[in-house]
Amino acid sequence: MTQLNINLNMADLTAQIQECNLNALTKSYTIALLNAYMEAERDKHVQAERSEQNDTRQDYRNGYYDREYMLPVGRIKLRVPRTRSGEFSTEVFEKYQRMDQALILTMIESVINGVSTRKVKKLVNALCGEEVSKSFVSNIMKRLDPEIKEFRERPLNLKNYRYIYVDAMYIDVRENHRIVSKAVYIAQGVNDDDYREIIGFMVSGQESEASWTQFFKNLRARGLGTPKIVISDAHKGLKKAIKGEFLGASWQRCTVHFLKNIIDVMPKDSSDERNALKLIFKATNPMNAKKYRTDFEALVSGNPKYDKALLKLDEGFDDAMQYLVVPELHQKHIRTTNSLERVNEEVRRRENVIRIFPNVESAVRLVGAVLMDEHENMLARRSRFLSEPPKKQ
């Protein structure tokens, strides 16, 4: 199992599956898997393509009927293939009754984690001795594409997004027999109900103003309105694209990145100065922010070792203080891109299994599957991402 780069404890996994409910996304993957398996069974029985006339044909396809099927993880509805003669009978219901039920999720998890189809086949054989062809598993992967496409292209004009977080991460992709770096652009919004959503993603070339503009134009074309604040790091191309595409929106520079940029040009033995600097970005109102800034400047005044730090602070101070216009309970979420960084970590965790994507399409498939799952988790949480401050009596 170690060659699969997946650490699975099947006993624990099975127990967890039986004790919890699948979310709708994972259920849809399970349905797609079983429907595809039955389709492959019927193809094998018929021994001919649709409308094909040959000497080996045994039967003709005759539509489907719906059947509910109960798994330990919940009830699902399947489309069972039929043939004209009525002689075809799927083995799915019998087979999956005695199969380790964790197999279904393991195959799905393997696909989502980017394990090659050859390794998925070995995994299935190792778990239950069942033969699953490479083409069958490849088709399962392709069946995820319509769902991911629908997720990427869903309209955004049905909700208002007050705050938008954007960030990019890099992945390696094979292209024209070379390994090239591609940027994954991700946008997260906070809707009027104060829940987070993944509102878009794109896999494209190197991070630039043109690429960010293309990404934002796509979000606009899907109906995204102008947010109150856009939160991001200070990439020059990104900053220009935000100003060009979101006229009237404020730009909040991520205070975590900004603080690091300043500390990087300060002397290493400057703990007191660093603590004074950090207070600036913990301020909850403009008056305190200006006071802490004045205190820091007074502390390092006259020391040329801090000239670069003072220059950086002066250049980015106003952009880093835009979070002060929102309610105090919102500020900790608005002043950084931390919430989106955690989403990036989930993508990176799966991406590390693969290291190098075979093509852009496979990257879109994996990133899309992870982001769809994260999106569902965000909307399913009981607690809202933002909470309004209590009203004064």
Rank of each mutant, 00 (worst) to 15 (best):
P267Y: 10
R348F: 02
E175Y: 12
Q214K: 13
P146V: 11
R57S: 06
S208T: 15
V230G: 04
K291Q: 13
R143C: 05
S85M: 03
A221C: 05
P390W: 06
L103A: 08
R152Q: 15
D12M: 10
N139P: 00
I280N: 06
R174V: 12
E130A: 12
Y163P: 03
C20W: 06
K159P: 01
R382W: 08
E341Q: 03
L25N: 12
K278L: 08
D167W: 02
S232T: 14
I31W: 05
A36G: 12
E346F: 01
V353R: 12
V166P: 00
A234W: 06
N191W: 04
D318T: 13
R82S: 02
W212M: 03
I354L: 13
R50G: 01
A24W: 05
S204I: 00
M378R: 04
M141I: 05
N176I: 03
N7W: 04
V360T: 14
I104A: 11
L386V: 07
Y195T: 08
P390R: 12
E328T: 14
G225N: 14
A363H: 01
R178S: 13
L34W: 01
F357Y: 15
R67A: 12
A283K: 08
V132D: 00
V137P: 01
H257D: 10
Q188D: 02
L299R: 15
V80I: 15
Y163I: 15
R222M: 11
S51R: 12
T83E: 11
G129P: 04
G205L: 04
S28G: 11
G129D: 06
W212S: 02
S138N: 10
L8F: 08
D193H: 11
N62C: 08
S204N: 12
E207H: 03
I262W: 10
N157K: 12
T30G: 12
Y195R: 15
H235V: 04
Y195F: 15
D319Y: 07
Q393T: 10
F246H: 01
L366Q: 03
K243R: 13
R50L: 11
G129H: 06
E361I: 00
F357A: 02
K149P: 02
N191S: 13
P327Q: 11
Y96S: 09
Q206E: 14
I186S: 00
M287Q: 15
Y323L: 10
V80R: 01
Q58E: 14
A11L: 13
E197I: 02
M141C: 13
S362F: 02
G223P: 09
Q393V: 10
G223F: 10
L158T: 14
I186D: 01
R118T: 09
L224V: 10
Q101M: 08
P155A: 09
R355Y: 09
F151W: 07
I280H: 06
V173G: 06
P72K: 07
R335L: 09
F151D: 05
P72N: 08
E39M: 07
S387D: 08
L277I: 07
N113H: 13
P267E: 10
A289E: 07
K134V: 14
M321K: 09
D12L: 14
L324E: 08
G368Q: 00
A289F: 09
S116Q: 04
E341P: 02
M141L: 08
E109R: 06
F136A: 09
L71H: 06
V173Y: 07
Q58N: 15
P155D: 08
N377D: 04
G86D: 04
E315Y: 10
V326T: 14
I104C: 06
